[in-house]
């Protein structure tokens, strides 16, 4: 293998195996030069991305979910970190008029919501537009980098902002793998998340929320309901096909 073809093979790794194999085979069969093959591959990658961005899917995944969720979930991560610190500091507990057990409930409640919102958001991003996952990842991390440079709190580590990342990456990975959830699982998660946000705005003991925060809670629950919708749609798809 020449140096040029080694470069072609290396560059071809950006393509999934089911595309890479026949494309490289076709190029070998056509006896193309390494330079022409490289140019062809580059053209293919650019055309595939252009084609992808003509659909609504990458826009929804990147600008509809990854970017806004990243901002909002950093706020939730900070709330969870704050609740944890409050649990460790008796003065702060007294200030908030909370007992230790109730503060623990608040922390657990918030942590579960954070995991649920991050996971479902990640799942939607990973499943809606797999071929543009790189762009969604950039749009998710960009606000993180901005906030990382802006965030200054002596009592808190900057890493507190990123508690959402682990469940979000886990969700994106699962979404990438399985694409759609089972209807019952999706419904269970969505209902659980929705039920869990009700006490956060109905009881001042859990958390005092502004209208913006209430709106944010509902916005963060949208991906979970989107998963319910897609699972429901899938459930009805075979019947439509059979009918046709």
């Amino acid at each position: 293998m020449t140096m040029g073809w080694a470069l072609v093979e290396y560059f071809a790794r950006v393509l999934p195996p089911e595309v890479r194999e026949p494309v490289l085979g076709d190029m070998l069969e056509a006896d193309e030069s390494a330079w022409r093959a490289l140019r062809g591959l580059f053209g293919l990658v650019v055309l595939r991305q252009t084609e992808d961005w003509r659909s609504w899917r990458p826009w929804l995944a990147g600008f509809g979910v990854a970017l806004p969720s990243s901002f909002m979930l950093m706020g939730v991560s900070l709330s969870v970190s704050w609740s944890y610190m409050r649990l460790l500091c008796p003065d702060m507990l007294a200030q908030a008029s909370l007992t230790k057990p109730s503060a623990m409930v608040v922390l657990l409640w918030q942590a579960l919501l954070l995991i649920g919102w991050s996971w479902t958001g990640g799942f939607v991003v990973g499943s809606v537009s797999k071929r543009t996952l790189w762009a969604s990842t950039v749009l998710c991390y960009a606000p993180c980098i901005v906030c990382l440079s802006q965030f200054h709190a002596e009592s808190m580590s900057r890493l507190c902002l990123f508690l959402f990342l682990l469940p979000a990456v886990w969700g994106a990975h699962r979404g990438f793998q399985i694409s759609r959830m089972k209807f019952t699982s999706a419904l269970l998660i969505a209902v659980a998340l929705t039920v869990m946000i009700v006490p956060t705005w109905s009881s001042a003991r859990i958390q005092t929320l502004s209208p913006q925060n209430i709106l944010m809670n509902w916005a963060l629950s949208i991906p979970a309901w989107y998963l319910v919708f897609t699972a429901w749609k899938r459930r009805h798809e075979p019947q439509v096909e059979h009918a046709a």
Binding site: M27, G40, L41, R48
Partner: peptide
């Protein structure tokens, strides 16, 4: 181009 062939096949 091979890009035109394969993106059109996909579409």
């Amino acid at each position: 181009s091979i890009g035109a062939i394969y993106t059109t096949i996909d579409r």
